[in-house]
Amino acid sequence: MLASAIPTLIFYLLAAISLTLAWSVVTGRRILRAAVSLMGVLGASAGLYLLLDSPFLAGVQVLVYVGGIVVLLVFAVMLTRTTELLEDHPTRLRQIVGSAVATGFFLLSYFMMTSDVFASRTLSALPKNDVAAIGRALLDTGEHGYALPFEVVSLLLLAAMIGGIVIARKPTALAKSEVPHG
């Protein structure tokens, strides 16, 4: 009785934290505070993964989102000069498009959750989720393997990285290398 009540309690606690912080991300005026709240939301999702018995996923969540994406976000905010969101009144077009996208996403997630797309919702059907099993599945070329998506994602990341370098490269350095000496 008590043993099953504690995870439920923790779930509702994490859910409440997530919702409160997510609300403050969207409504906050100070952009850096919004970034910190976002970090809290992502951390709470890591907690939910832990509750689902997937410590590896939780670790990756913290590593990639809290340690990577939020840090980059804060870094980008620090490079820009505006400390607060200046746009008080978004245009009518933005309001319409924004609410349409939000409603669409809400409906999509609602139907996804209510339909039976997730076949393994019962506990017995859960796949093994230890690190070794995940690693094997990522490199498996067989029927249930993920070798092809894994490679495609690596290719995408490589392309993004090269694109980033090309954009960030100073045009003067490019011009100098093309112009012969003298």
């Binding site: 410590p55 590896f56 670790g59 990756v60 913290v62 590593l63 809290v66 340690g67 990577g68 840090v71 230890d130 690190v131």
Partner: peptide, 14 residues
């Protein structure tokens, strides 16, 4: 933890 090394890398990001 089972994911010790990953955990250490992850939380040191804070």
């Amino acid at each position: 933890m089972n994911i010790g090394v990953l955990y250490v890398t992850a939380v040191s990001g804070l």
